[in-house]
Design a protein around this nucleic acid. Structure first.
Lengths: 163, 163
DNA sequence: CTACTTAGTCAAGGTGCTTTACTCGCAGTG
DNA sequence: CACTGCGAGTAAAGCACCTTGACTAAGTAG
């Protein structure tokens, strides 16, 4: 049932006694840690992953703070605070919204677009290097199946701080 | 280089456009969310994952607050606060340390051991169910390889809140 | 006895989010 | 025209959780 393979396992590579949930968390933590480390080395050490997520959500035509909140899975106040911070540091601007009303359109500056480029490059380099140690294709496939099993077919849910 | 398989991919199952790092985070978040949900259904809703980690670290002969801090990867003050909380709610006791000194031995009560049993059962049930949708063996194998590649052969690092 | 080390604790501070409550701009209705 | 309501934004306070800094207590080595 729980495939406790005390005698069968031949690969010494699967941390057989470690919970899958723990292994998932460790994998994420280590990959994300390596990502932020390389990002800092590339001169982007003043932005945390959540900022990159925000940039992704604003990429293209921008969005209102409320839309950003939905895409990040936080309250609109939290999104407003993130925008305050990013605006103060020159990564986004608040412009009048073409649709009028009280809305403001949050758009990326060149610095944010530069960050997106660097982060994308770092992520792809990291994945390519991991492909030397693991079967990244299989990993992606199985992770996708797990995500689908737990969340269904709809669009991906927002990635939030985990606990 | 980045194995952008626009033409080759036949499995529509790998969220080809999604970053591996994102997929890892999503997988962890969803599995952990399902875990805590089931734990709450099993009447253990007043304990967060970090408490389960603490119980694991204390299982057996117990430990001092400082040892707990090392195993959780936090400061000894933070460990002390966690112990305060758990003691107040009856999950651990502070006993005089057999080795003397100023040390105190933090040991689990029956309630904590019960939690460990339930949590272990839930984790194994969850993994068994996921095995119906994904190749859990392959997932464990590839995650293990990633962990090994990024952390080396030494013992597993503590699992910390991720950002 | 003094000096150093180690474990524990108290207090303050910081971060990042939430909840509560408000203000502003606009649309619809009588 | 006011009047009502609503959606977006913001201000303030609170909370969960961790850190840093400073201190006390107990043991140990010189």
């Amino acid at each position: 049932m729980t495939q406790s393979c005390h005698h069968i396992c031949v690969t010494r590579d699967d941390y057989a006694g470690v919970e899958l949930t723990f292994l998932l968390g460790l994998g994420f933590q280590l990959v994300l840690g390596e990502f932020t480390r390389r990002l800092a080395d590339a001169g982007q050490g003043d932005l945390r992953p959540v900022h990159g997520m925000a940039f992704q959500a604003l990429k293209g035509d921008g969005a209102t703070a409320t839309e950003l909140a939905e895409r990040l899975g936080v309250t609109k106040q939290a999104a407003g605070q993130i925008v305050d911070d990013l605006e103060r540091r020159g990564y986004v601007r608040r412009e009048p919204h073409p649709g009028g009303g009280r809305r403001k359109l949050v758009v990326l500056t060149a610095a944010a677009r530069e960050h997106l480029l660097v982060a994308g490059r770092v992520l792809h380099e990291l994945e390519a290097e991991l492909a030397g140690s693991a079967d990244v294709g299989a990993l992606r496939r199985e992770l996708s199946r797990v995500v689908r099993a737990l969340h269904g077919e709809g669009g991906l849910p927002p990635l939030r701080p985990v606990w």
